[in-house]
Each structure stands twice: as structure tokens, then as C-alpha cells.
Design a protein around this nucleic acid. Structure first.
Length: 267
DNA sequence: CCGACGAGTTGTGGATATAT
DNA sequence: ATATATCCACAACTCGTCGG
């Protein structure tokens, strides 16, 4: 979906044309006014409560949604840097992680805690419309390839990307109106995908409950004579459970039980 | 004023430890 | 095994001071 949006295919359907006239080739740095990183400080491992101050962990920005529960508390409030405070609208990105998750961006929509950037999380300042566009691009296949290709480090379990390399990432930029329309379109599709996911999860939960309730009924002996009369198709025929049990019993009766041998224990 | 220098700060890369 | 935290060394940058 993201790839389609960034390659212009969503607007193609929307406009009924396939040309990318007017799309500029720029770099991420062309959108970014300022880039900031935070501090590496020893903290208490739990998120800060009201009146306390803290630092976000990498995991707060890893999964596409800003999760302020993924944070730790500063030992002293005075260590908090007001200039590095995380605010609504911030575009955040981690500069270190496993290769698959490195550079995953988030846009902060809600803030309830006093949190600041960590040394591994960068804040990219840009216009609101560009934040949405950069967010879509960096999460697309092309964006991921650019980030992964620019990452450094010998350990695949902890790759890094520097500010310079990040800002040099090339990205396509449509004219303003078209960009707004693509962002709106992608948002709608994501909302739709979320609804489908919710419905699937609810359906799975119902299936699970059904299985559990059938088993519960079975073990409570509620599949009574009356139930058997009501559901003849479930209990008749050679494939029914009762027929299968009868067959197993008959087979056992014809065989003498095999002598069990104890396996020699290995050291 | 300007350049050299040093101290302090910030940014980066990456090894290794740790939690799940 | 994977994801992330921590730590550390080093590079790069910033800023204040001083002498010419």
C-alpha cells in the first residue's frame, strides 16, 4: 500500500492517469529544517509518573505508533532538558536498531508524560505536511531499502544510521495538492485496514470462544439424549466421533498390549 | 581582529550485555 | 534468537580565552 502510494499508483487510480509530472526528486534533508538528538543518561527502569521526568526508549518509536509507556524515569528532575522535550507533532526516528526496525519513524499524536529524546532517537523538524509524506515514504519498500542500504555496523543485531546518511536519502516529492491527496488516501486505506484487522481479531476471538464452549459443554455432559436427537447429522455416519471410538476399542481388543521397554537413560 | 589552543559538548559507531 | 539498552572510544563541533 505504501509502495503504491509512493510510486504514484494510488493517485493513478484517483486521477485516471499514470504520469508523475511535477514530481521532484529531492532528499530527506530537503524537507528537514533541523535535526536533534537526546541524552544518554542512567535512569530508573519504569516510566515516569505525574510530576516526574523521563527519557523515551527506542521501543517508543519502533512500531509505527508513539508509545510513551516505553520510557524510563530520570533520577533527578533537574536532568531533564526542556529543549529535548517530546511534543505533539514531533517526527521521531531511531538511529539504532536491528536492520528491519532501524529508522522506523513515528509522528507523536498524544503526550501525557514529561519525556525527552534519548541518544538513540532523533527528532526531525519539518513542515506538518512533509512529516506525513516522509512518514509514508520511510515506511514504504523504497524507504526501507534506502535506510537499510545506508546503515552501518558489523553487527546485524544493532545497525546504526548517522544523521548525514539519513538526510541524504532520496525521495520523490509530488506537488503540494497531490501530496496532500495521497496522504489523505493512504490514511483512509490504513483506517480501512485497521477496521478489517479488528473484525478479523473479533471473529478469531468468537471462534476461540466457540471451541471452548463446545469443549466445556462436552465435559459437563450437556450433549444429552435430546441434543443427539436434535443433531443427528453430527453423530451419525462412520466418521462421527462415537463411531471412531468404537473402532479404536475394537482394534485394541484384538491386539495384545505390547511389552513396554524402559529406555536406557543417557548421561 | 584573527588564529591557535584547549576544554567541554555533541554526535557517531559499534561491541557487548541484558531482557524477553 | 531477537530486540534493545548500555557503555565507551573517538570524531567533530562549539565556545571561551589569550597572545600577537
Amino acid at each position: 500500500m505504501l509502495a503504491a502510494a509512493v510510486s504514484g499508483r494510488l493517485t493513478e487510480e484517483w486521477r485516471g492517469t499514470s504520469d508523475l509530472t511535477g514530481w521532484a526528486k529531492i532528499t530527506l534533508g530537503g524537507l528537514v529544517d533541523k535535526i536533534e538528538s537526546g541524552k544518554n543518561l542512567k535512569c530508573i527502569e519504569t516510566p515516569p509518573n505525574e510530576g516526574e521526568f523521563g527519557i523515551i526508549k527506542i521501543s517508543a518509536v519502533t512500531w509505527g505508533i508513539y508509545d510513551e509507556k516505553q520510557s524510563k524515569t530520570l533520577p533527578q528532575n533537574s536532568l531533564f532538558l526542556e529543549t529535548r522535550r517530546i511534543k505533539v507533532g514531533d517526527f521521531l526516528i531511531s538511529r539504532a536498531n536491528t536492520i528491519e526496525l532501524l529508522g522506523n519513524p513515528v509522528i507523536v499524536h498524544k503526550v501525557t508524560k514529561n519525556l525527552m529524546l534519548s541518544d538513540k532517537v532523533l527528532r526531525l523538524e519539518m513542515k506538518d505536511g512533509d512529516k506525513l509524506w516522509a512518514n509514508i515514504f520511510l515506511r514504504s519498500i523504497s524507504g526501507r531499502q534506502e535506510i537499510q542500504g545506508r546503515s552501518t555496523g558489523n553487527q546485524m543485531s544493532m545497525r546504526n544510521i548517522g544523521q548525514k546518511a539519513l538526510l541524504e536519502i532520496p525521495l520523490p516529492k509530488p506537488p503540494c495538492e497531490e501530496q496532500t491527496e495521497i496522504v489523505r488516501h493512504v490514511d483512509q486505506l490504513f483506517a480501512h485496514a485497521d477496521r478489517i484487522e479488528q473484525e478479523v481479531n473479533q471473529a478469531l476471538a468468537r471462534v476461540n470462544n466457540l471451541t471452548q464452549s463446545i469443549l466445556a459443554k462436552a465435559f459437563r455432559g450437556e450433549f444429552t439424549e435430546q441434543w443427539r436427537k436434535d443433531n443427528p447429522e453430527l453423530i451419525s455416519g462412520e466418521n462421527s466421533a462415537s463411531a471412531l471410538l468404537e473402532r479404536i476399542k475394537a482394534e485394541r481388543a484384538t491386539k495384545t498390549p505390547a511389552k513396554r521397554t524402559r529406555k536406557k537413560a543417557t548421561v
